[in-house]
C-alpha cells in the first residue's frame, strides 16, 4: 500500500455559516463595547495617577470614627446572619418540593423550581431596592434581600443534594410501614444534613460580602458609611471602612472554612 493512498483527516475544518455569524456578532459587540468605554492611553495614565492620589490621601486611615464604623460592620454581619438563617429555613421546604424523590406532585415541583430560579436570577441589589421601597430604609430591607438570595442559592443546592441520596435506607423505612413524612425526615434529611450545613456556611460568607454592598442603596449596614466617606472625599475614613470590611470578610471565611472542614 502506498503512503498517499489514505489521506489523513484535514487539519482544519471550515466553520459552518452559523459559527461565522456568531463570531461576527461577538466581535461586533466586543469592539462596540470597547469603543463605548473610551479607552485611551491618556485616560489610563490619568487613572493610575488618580489611584495613587487616592491612596496618598487615604493614608494613614482615619481611626477617629472606628467605633461608629465598627458598629455598622456589626450590623452588616448580623444582617447577613439573620437573613441566612431565615433563608435556610425557608429553603428546606422549597428544596424538598423541587427534588425529584421528595416532591409531592410534578406540577408543584415545577412551580418550586421556577420560584427558586426567580429568587436566584434577580440580583441581591435589586431585591434590596425593592425591599427599601416596601419596608423603608434600614437593615430589615437588607435582611429580606439576603433571605431571597439565600433561598435562590440554598434551595437549588439542597435539592440537588436530596436527589443524590441513596434510595435504599428510605426504601427500607417505607418497607416497615412508615409514612412519607417519616421517611423523608428519618432517612433522607439526616443524610443531607452535613452538606446542608456546609452550603449554609458558604451562604453566610456570600451574604456578608453582599450585605456590604446593600448599604449603598440604603438597606442598612456599612455600605452607607463607605458611600458617605467617598462622596465627601474623606478618603482616609473610606480606607478605614474598606480595611474593616476586609478583616471581617476574611475572618468569616476562615471561620466557616474551619467549621466546614470539621463536619464534612
Amino acid at each position: 500500500m502506498s503512503v498517499a493512498e489514505r489521506q489523513p483527516p484535514p487539519r482544519w475544518q471550515r466553520p459552518s455559516l452559523s459559527v461565522w455569524l456568531l463570531a461576527v456578532v461577538f466581535i461586533a459587540f466586543f469592539l462596540h463595547g470597547l469603543h463605548g468605554a473610551e479607552v485611551s492611553p491618556e485616560r489610563l495614565g490619568q487613572g493610575a495617577v488618580n489611584v495613587g492620589l487616592f491612596l496618598a490621601e487615604s493614608f494613614p486611615p482615619d481611626l477617629s470614627r472606628l467605633s461608629v464604623i465598627g458598629r455598622a460592620m456589626l450590623e452588616t454581619f448580623q444582617m447577613a446572619l439573620v437573613g441566612v438563617v431565615f433563608g435556610v429555613i425557608a429553603s428546606i421546604p422549597f428544596a424538598l418540593l423541587s427534588a425529584r424523590n421528595t416532591t409531592l406532585h410534578p406540577g408543584l415541583r415545577w412551580l418550586a423550581k421556577m420560584l427558586v430560579a426567580v429568587f436566584r436570577t434577580i440580583p441581591d441589589l435589586v431585591w434590596a431596592l425593592i425591599f427599601v421601597v416596601a419596608v423603608g430604609l434600614g437593615p430589615l430591607a437588607g435582611i429580606l434581600a439576603i433571605m431571597m438570595d439565600t433561598i435562590g442559592f440554598c434551595g437549588r443546592f439542597f435539592a440537588e443534594r436530596i436527589e443524590e441520596t441513596d434510595p435504599r435506607p428510605a426504601q427500607a423505612l417505607s418497607a416497615t410501614g412508615c409514612s412519607r413524612f417519616a421517611v423523608v425526615f428519618g432517612a433522607i434529611v439526616p443524610e443531607c444534613l452535613p452538606s446542608f450545613i456546609g452550603t449554609s456556611l458558604y451562604s453566610v460568607e456570600k451574604a456578608v460580602r453582599s450585605a456590604v454592598v446593600l448599604g449603598l442603596v440604603g438597606a442598612g449596614g456599612i455600605g452607607v458609611e463607605l458611600s458617605a466617606a467617598m462622596n465627601l472625599f474623606q478618603y482616609d475614613q473610606a480606607l478605614t471602612v474598606i480595611l474593616t470590611i476586609l478583616v471581617v470578610v476574611i475572618a468569616v471565611e476562615q471561620l466557616s472554612g474551619w467549621i466546614r472542614g470539621r463536619i464534612l
Partner: peptide, 13 residues
C-alpha cells in the same frame, strides 16, 4: 413484615 436487605439499608449518618 420485617425486612433484612443486603447492606446499606440503615441510615449511615
Amino acid at each position: 413484615i420485617g425486612c433484612v436487605f443486603q447492606q446499606m439499608n440503615l441510615v449511615p449518618n
